[in-house]
Amino acid sequence: MLRVENVYKQFDNSFLALDAVNLEVHPGEIVSLVGTSGCGKSTLLRIISGLDFPSEGDVWIDNEPIANPHPEVGMIFQEPRLMPWLTVKDNVRFGLEQAADSEAAIATTLVKVGLADFANALPRQLSGGMAQRVAIARALITQPSILLLDEPFSALDAFTRTKLQDHLLHIWEYDRPTMLLVTHDIEEALVLSDRIIVMRSNPGRIHREFVLDLPRPRKRTDTHLQQWKERLLNELDLSLVRSLTGV
């Protein structure tokens, strides 16, 4: 279980990025953090990953406060972040401590992400979508119980993005890891999540949360989903956008 307790984050220039954030994510749950840019959603994810530190408050994983990246946590970034000098196989192996007898596990994971034929390819030979699937495989190989995703598909074209969202759900079916997903794509949040948390900026804080009690797989064209989309758009603090564009 993942618990964020009263987390503040103040940057050196005294900008308050996170203001008293509390959050609980249950095992196997898929939760999305949405919000306009600057609302602190990525900062929150980085703190949970252990790459960044809160100014105050704690992140608890399995009833222990974390000080460093936790072994049970897998991270998928916005960019694939593959080591360009390693083959696909070795990139997947990258996070394993005992790399010796892992060939079978790597092969299985590459099959899971549909890249079994590309084990020996170099990152420069891959398309954006394939590279991101390698990044997913690298995160999965350690069999994390918590998977953190920081706008994982936002750099991809719409077609690839839709495909990978379905694919991610497909993968989730295997081990049912807890997933915490930062996105600014409302449709993505609606298709994937059990719960959507809306954040607002200045200072960054949790504004509201919505529980989506809809069966999966969800159709993007579903009227239910369209209604939800409208509700969520209203909840996002778009007043600034309106005043800027004069709408």
């Binding site: 992400v113 549909g114 890249l115 590309f118 030979q125 495909k163 379905d166 694919h167 999966r216």
Partner: peptide, 18 residues
């Protein structure tokens, strides 16, 4: 649940680069 499996389709289409 039964999901369509995109990996298969991607495989055959992406064999060319190698």
């Amino acid at each position: 649940m039964n999901y369509p499996s995109p990996p298969k389709r991607l495989n055959s289409a992406t064999l060319a680069p190698v």
